[in-house]
């Protein structure tokens, strides 16, 4: 899932480790989410958005709906 965590971190001057501490997860988790290798659960996505004082949709790009039929 695409997101702008890297940009937001840069704006706040936070390292991945600092954001990880604020959210209560490992740095590897933040790294994987930031690079789109791991999609967070809804509660974790809320925690990440809360850390930046934003809504989920301001942090994460809404994924395209699954294709119907075929």
């Amino acid at each position: 899932m695409k997101n702008c965590i890297r940009v937001l971190r840069a704006e706040h001057s936070w390292s991945q480790a600092e954001l990880a501490d604020r959210v209560g997860v490992s740095r590897n988790s933040i790294n994987s989410i930031e690079n789109g290798r791991f999609d967070p659960s809804l509660p974790l996505a809320f925690h990440i958005a809360d850390a930046f004082g934003l809504t989920i949709e301001e942090v994460f790009e809404r994924p395209a709906p699954p294709e119907k039929g075929t």
Binding site: G24, S26, N28, S29, S32, F38, P40, S41, L44
Partner: peptide
């Protein structure tokens, strides 16, 4: 107890 990414790994 760990976070969801670590748990998955």
């Amino acid at each position: 107890e760990t976070d969801e990414f670590t748990r998955m790994m």
